[in-house]
Design a protein around this nucleic acid. Structure first.
Lengths: 204, 204
DNA sequence: GTGTTAGGGAACGCGAACGTCTCCTACGCT
DNA sequence: AGCGTAGGAGACGTTCGCGTTCCCTAACAC
């Protein structure tokens, strides 16, 4: 009858932020593994080694949970904007490459989430607004700001500070990664910057 | 007790192709209304006013059904390629606008389907292959062919016959329509052609 | 007309998640 | 050390869609 219990010092029962982190991870993993259509709260709970109640206590619906996990991992305007706006030295081209890298990273890790969002946003205006505000806007704004600074330094044509040009980079990257599920290497990302974006916006 | 039955000549019970058309329509409508996650065979059957058995008899799985409906409505390489390759007179720019219009049309009507495909294709290699072969490839090939002809007529730089350039147009259109669920007007489509695609590929 | 085929409609048992609730215990605070 | 809160585990009844099967009849072929 003697169950030899090791002295595991790690907390067996998480709370608050630690628990929420674990749940967010589980959501991400679950989405990647089974997809949004087959996504269930029960599986997330099991994967996070928690009870369903702990999830329902925090998020009333599947959408809320997924959206929150998404924001927690990729959200916040500061991360991207801040990084790029801090650096006032690097040429526009390099900033674009860094932005592209970041977009690739997010699109890779959060591919299933983004697809799920796109699917649900059609029918859920609140979700659409949240994604618009927390994800799309900041990214777009960062890009436009980046173009504006390029103009100041004479690297970018003034006419190029427009939505169409700001959308080109994310559009081409997500077209491949999100819609066609093709990986994009760093070289290809750079190719898009050098062959598509820069020629469109550069002076001369 | 006299039920006055009008002499309705229209068949009350459809068969074969007529029935399949109705089911395809129902699939499209159902996807648009409730989305792929909440999509059920029962609802499709009810909407098409048919029995579940008639659907199961034809398509073993949800994916097969949706894919088939998609192909039936938007598939076939001939429609796009044929249309564009027939016309050997119009300038490249106009052909691009026509292609853009077509892409907009498909992306608008089939938005939910395309999103659903993107979601499922990650986990279903067969589906991915089918979409790749029946949708992506022909579109891409048509675009490259179009570029090639442009070169022959001196409208397009020879170096522009590359994948990156062929992807720019569909990428920018679907980025807006499929991922961000924003409508794209004919004027905007033309803007993309004139401000993005043409400058990239045109001679000089 | 007669026979064959296939559509419509619905009932069926089954399994999976739902969302709620309860019990008990680990945690963290004082 | 003791207390209150919150986490884990899972049972519960319910709902829902699955995929199958049945019967009956409309549609078509001959």
């Amino acid at each position: 009858m003697t169950v030899i219990s090791e002295a595991s010092v790690a907390p067996q029962r998480r709370r608050g932020a630690a628990l929420e982190d674990a749940i967010h991870c589980a959501v991400l993993a679950e989405l990647a593994e089974v997809g949004y259509a087959a996504f269930t709260i029960e599986s997330v709970a099991a994967r996070a080694k928690t009870g369903k109640a702990s999830i329902y206590r925090r998020w009333p619906t599947k959408q809320d949970l997924v959206l929150d996990a998404f924001i927690a991992r990729f959200g916040g305007p500061d991360e991207i904007v801040g990084e790029l706006l801090t650096d006032t030295e690097a040429p526009t081209r390099d900033l674009l490459v860094r932005l592209a890298t970041r977009i690739c990273q997010v699109s890779d890790e959060g591919a299933e989430m983004i697809r799920a969002m796109a699917c649900e946003a059609t029918r859920d205006p609140e979700l659409a607004a949240a994604v618009e505000q927390k994800v799309y806007r900041p990214k777009h704004a960062a890009f436009v700001e980046l173009l504006r600074r390029g103009v100041e330094r004479g690297e970018v044509r003034p006419e190029a500070v427009r939505g169409v040009y700001a959308e080109a980079l994310p559009a081409m990257l997500t077209y491949r990664m999100i819609l066609n599920n093709q990986p994009v290497t760093a070289a290809e990302a750079a190719e898009i910057v050098d062959c598509v974006v820069m020629p469109l916006i550069a002076t001369n």
